[in-house]
């Protein structure tokens, strides 16, 4: 990612992954909007790091995505604990709002091939962790 350029990033889900990303990306100087259905989850956003916007709402509701100005977004990250929500929001971001960079987190490795088929860029945290662990084991 370009160092100096300020991107408009929408992070969907403010759990462990979402809040971590939102804090980090906002701190790096990007303009960040976080969407979560549960307003309490915004507590994980650190005042000294996060200076973006928070939107309380369901990311599978089109009005919520429009409200987050998804049409203006450079990046959309699907980071909720429900991979189906991430995949759906990711597809809408890509196909409806023409967002140039869409990245979704999935948990089930069985869904990797599906994501490739529908053309949504994904990170499967389960496969990723497994690979890291196997590599670590092989090193010893």
């Amino acid at each position: 990612m370009a160092e100096a350029k300020c991107l408009y990033i929408i992070v969907i889900g403010c759990g462990r992954l979402g809040s971590f990303l939102a804090n980090r990306l906002s701190n790096q100087g990007h303009s960040v909007v976080v969407i979560d259905i549960n307003p309490n989850s915004f507590d994980a956003l650190m005042a000294d790091q996060f200076s973006g916007f928070k939107i309380e709402g369901d990311a599978t509701e089109l009005a919520v995505l429009s409200h987050a100005k998804m049409d203006k977004a450079d990046v959309v990250i699907g980071a909720t604990h429900d991979e189906n929500v991430n995949i759906m929001a990711g597809q809408i971001a890509k196909n409806n709002f023409n967002v140039p960079k869409v990245l979704v987190r999935i948990l089930d490795p069985n869904k990797e091939s599906f994501c490739r088929q529908i053309g949504v860029e994904y990170i499967c945290t389960t496969s990723l962790a497994a690979e890291k662990m196997i590599t670590a084991l092989n090193q010893k």
């Binding site: 599978t60 089109l62 009005a63 929500v85 599906f114």
Partner: peptide, 28 residues
């Protein structure tokens, strides 16, 4: 909605089901 979409897309892409019907809660 997210599950219904996923089920229909999987059915079509992975299993070749031609007719897929989904309930949507958000009319949009």
């Amino acid at each position: 909605d997210e599950d219904n979409l996923m089920i229909c897309q999987l059915s079509k892409l992975n299993f070749g089901i031609q007719k897929t019907l989904a309930l949507v809660n958000d009319p949009n």
